[in-house]
Design a protein around this nucleic acid. Structure first.
Length: 226
DNA sequence: GCGACAG
DNA sequence: ATCTTGTCGC
């Protein structure tokens, strides 16, 4: 992956929210890419009590979902966690991790929301808009929106709504476990996001790209790396 | 004014 | 996210 456009990261919360509102207009909820050969998963972890941010990008082949490469990036953490502004804290190092991959994936799974965000620009949507990549947001918990509890069996889904607007899907990826909050990031639609997430689950709650990235971004992954 | 609040 | 071991439940 090559270098991208210049993007302002060190903004005040007010400036960041204004930028989110502008960037959200660039989000495209089109059907996901038809030709998918590689899928990437990205996730972020923190060291030194939060002073260092560490992002992992994992590349997997489709449809086998075998890992074909990965890259880990570390940078000083620039912002604290503020609900709704997660992407400004994590995307800089996530971009560095993605740039370390030697192949550009057709699809990227992000840990967090896509358009299921107060201003419709969760981390997955933000990443997609500034890179042009097709992205899907996979959240382990809810940021905004209301929904019914999905059935207990794997595959059960309910709509995630913000007022009259549908912003995603609550998906049970494994029977009896807490559901995931799935929403499109960029160049993907609501149904396509759910289809891809379920297609990438291999017996665990998290889809493989996210699960592998989680693993590498966690402490164990850092050791495995050196 | 009082909660809620991705990771 | 992170601090942290064993343990309760399916």
């Amino acid at each position: 992956m090559e270098r991208l456009i210049d993007h302002p990261w060190d903004l005040t919360p007010t400036e960041a929210r204004a930028l989110q509102t502008r960037l959200a207009r660039e989000v495209r909820l089109t059907p996901p890419p038809a030709e998918v050969r590689t899928i990437a998963g990205v996730d972020t972890g923190f060291e030194d009590g939060g002073r260092t941010a560490r992002a992992a990008a994992v590349l997997m082949g489709w449809p086998d979902l075998e890992p074909v490469g990965h890259h880990i990036a570390r940078e000083p953490t620039r912002m604290p966690y503020v609900p709704g502004l997660l992407s400004f804290r994590e995307l800089p190092v996530v971009l560095a991790a993605l740039e370390g991959l030697d192949t550009t994936p057709e699809l990227v799974f992000c840990d967090g929301q896509g358009i299921a965000h107060p201003r419709r620009l969760g981390i997955a949507a933000h990443l997609g808009v500034i890179t042009g990549l097709a992205t899907i947001g996979v959240g382990k918990s809810r940021l905004v929106g209301s929904h019914e509890e999905p059935g207990r069996e794997r595959g059960a889904c309910t709509a995630l709504m913000d007022g009259d607007e549908r912003i995603g899907t609550v998906v049970r990826t494994r029977t009896g476990v807490r559901p995931l909050y799935v929403s499109p990031g960029h160049r993907c639609d609501i149904d396509g996001a759910v289809d891809w997430v379920l297609a990438c689950c291999r017996g665990y709650r998290l889809p493989e790209p996210t699960r592998q990235a989680d693993h590498l971004a966690s402490r164990r992954g850092a050791f495995r790396e050196g």
